[in-house]
């Protein structure tokens, strides 16, 4: 089936699979199963805090838990992943912070493990003059958990680096969500998002850090995030 080789240049789709009767060839069935298994493993793998600490050193962090006690609850109850477990907020100290960074496992701790330390370092370099709050790592966390954390820290801007839902082709894609004046109840339309940060044809760390720093500076300067900010940045950041 040489003809398919040429067509595969145009798409990553699983075209031209072999056939055994009506079924796909076993090779293709097993390749699909492997991709699915990697995605499933990424969903269920816990964040390795020791390794994260080593990768982030000398930067230290405070680890906090959401109200979802385990992965099974987390998957069923997004509302619990959006607020802190009882007692956790008391561990945060309010201060004069411009930006609070939060590393959140989300649906792929693997993505945080692979990309968050390098992206965070690159972003901090670009945002040096700003006052950055002590780093928080949030477990069983959804994007909106950053609102409660950011509010408790009294940060002007909260930036959540979170593992995105794994797909069959990429299981370690990281996303960034930025919210000005974070507080519980913020709508998704009030956030800016940078998605698809990964090593298989996605956004690389330097490019993602450039976008992140640009958005953070603009959000702080204009005092807003979300739809209003996004529209104006489009011509500056094509794609």
């Amino acid at each position: 089936m040489a003809g398919w080789e040429r067509l595969r240049m145009a798409t990553r789709a699983r075209i031209g699979l072999g056939r055994a009767g009506d079924a796909p060839a076993l090779r293709d069935v097993l390749a699909f199963q492997m991709a699915h298994a990697e995605a499933r493993d990424a969903v269920h793998a816990p964040l390795d805090l020791d390794r994260l600490a080593a990768d982030l050193a000398p930067l230290s962090f405070l680890a906090l838990r959401s109200a979802a006690p385990d992965r099974a609850t987390y998957l069923r109850r997004p509302d619990l992943g959006r607020r802190l477990a009882p007692g956790e907020a008391a561990k945060l100290q309010a201060g004069e912070h411009d930006i609070a960074f939060i590393l959140a496992d989300g649906l792929s701790a693997t993505a945080v493990q692979h990309h968050a330390p390098a992206l965070l370092r690159a972003a901090l370099e670009r945002l040096r003059p700003h006052r950055v709050a002590p780093l928080v790592v949030a477990l069983q966390a959804r994007v909106a958990l950053g609102d409660e954390i950011g509010a408790a820290l009294r940060a002007r801007l909260c930036v959540v680096l979170i593992g995105e839902r794994p797909g069959l082709s990429v299981a370690d894609s990281l996303g960034v969500y930025m919210t000005f004046a974070p507080r519980p109840g913020r709508a998704d339309s009030e956030r800016n998002c940078i998605s698809n940060i990964h090593g298989r044809g996605g956004l690389d760390h330097a490019a993602a850090a450039d976008k992140l720093a640009w958005l953070a500076r603009e959000a702080l300067a204009r005092g807003l995030s979300g739809v209003g900010l996004k529209e104006e940045m489009n011509p500056l950041l094509p794609g």
């Binding site: 789709a13 699983r14 009506d22 796909p24 699909f32 991709a35 839902r165 797909g167 069959l168």
Partner: peptide, 23 residues
């Protein structure tokens, strides 16, 4: 194709599955 939607990032049925069900 191959039950893998590469744009919407989810798994549907494959063209092969339709053939199998018809048979």
């Amino acid at each position: 194709p191959g039950a893998d939607d590469i744009m919407l990032n989810y798994q549907s049925l494959s063209f092969h599955d339709i053939l199998a069900l018809r048979s």
